[in-house]
Computed example of a mutant assay.
Amino acid sequence: MRIAFTKMHGLGNDFVVLDARDAPIPEIDAVAAAAIADRHTGIGCDQLVLLEPSSMADFRMRIFNADGSEVEACGNATRAVGLLHGSAARIETLGGVIAASPAQTGIAVEMGHPRFVWDEIPLAYPMDTHAMPVAWEELADPIAVNVGNPHAIFFVPDTAAVDLARLGPEIENDQLFPERINVNVATIVSRQAIRLRVWERGAGLTRACGTGACATAIGAMRRGLVDRKVTVKLPGGALSIEWREDGEIVMTGPAAESFRGDFDAAAYGLFEFGTAG
């Protein structure tokens, strides 16, 4: 059989979207997800996104990183899926139910409430997540935030000066983080703007990370460095992040469809059908 896909991106963070909401497809596992995501022998993407029926929301979104690991949330993928869906929707994820809707400047996503307690990140042992007493060379005293998935944020004078390709995987896989960690290096530009680079757990350096932008903005707000609504500038473009008074994080930014196609399921070892939902 052949499986249809839609290739999409949010600020250069790219996705292969498989839609199983109306008709089932063979069960996707880590091996198949990594094979599809491979940029040399597969379709190529940062994340594979699978849409399925949901009993608690309009539909369910599952997200697999390029290494095949399944993750709780992805802000850029949610905007892409919101664009594909075409109207306001509540979306079930491993990180909780979130909402996406069309906005004047793209797609607005209500990402839920941030979490700060050490075992909600999670960390391996109790620690003050507001200023963690740890360091990896020049990267020190991060703030940890969970916005559906875990992030450590380091505020630095110049994001470009950090060798994130080298330090990112070291921090991601440190024993302090039992579920690994997304690594963010951020520079405060003004009360309304932040510059950000992200080493994404399971994907590596990325042009944009929506949850990273949310976590970094919340971390900067907690430390009193910026206002409650900021622009986060990533290598792929800018996102607007607002932390509303009710505690909800709202991320707004563009998404785009690149192309559509299909592939031979057997070429990726997909034979047996799973049960969607």
Rank of each mutant, 00 (worst) to 15 (best):
T41Y: 14
I43M: 00
I43T: 01
I43W: 01
C45W: 11
C45N: 08
D46G: 04
Q47E: 08
L48F: 00
L48T: 05
V49K: 00
V49A: 11
S55I: 01
D58M: 13
D58L: 09
F59W: 13
R60N: 02
R60S: 09
R60E: 11
M61E: 03
M61D: 02
R62V: 06
R62A: 01
I63E: 00
D67R: 09
S69R: 12
E70V: 13
E70F: 10
V71G: 06
A73R: 06
A73S: 08
G75P: 03
T78P: 03
T78G: 03
T78R: 02
L83E: 06
L84G: 01
G86N: 11
S87L: 05
A89K: 03
A89M: 06
A89C: 15
R90P: 00
G95D: 12
G96R: 04
G96C: 12
A99E: 15
A100S: 04
A100D: 04
P102D: 10
P102N: 05
A103N: 02
Q104F: 05
Q104M: 10
T105K: 14
I107A: 01
P114A: 11
R115E: 13
F116E: 06
V117W: 12
W118I: 05
W118L: 06
W118H: 07
P122M: 03
P126C: 14
P126L: 14
P126A: 12
H130D: 15
A131I: 07
M132C: 12
W136S: 03
E137V: 06
E138L: 13
A140L: 10
A140R: 14
A140Y: 09
A140M: 09
D141V: 12
D141S: 10
P142S: 06
N146G: 00
N146L: 09
G148V: 13
N149Q: 11
H151N: 13
H151P: 11
I153L: 15
F155H: 03
F155P: 00
V156N: 06
D158A: 13
T159V: 15
A160Q: 15
L167E: 02
E170S: 09
N173D: 10
N173M: 07
Q175A: 15
F177I: 07
P178G: 03
E179S: 11
E179G: 04
R180C: 10
R180W: 14
N182S: 08
N182H: 07
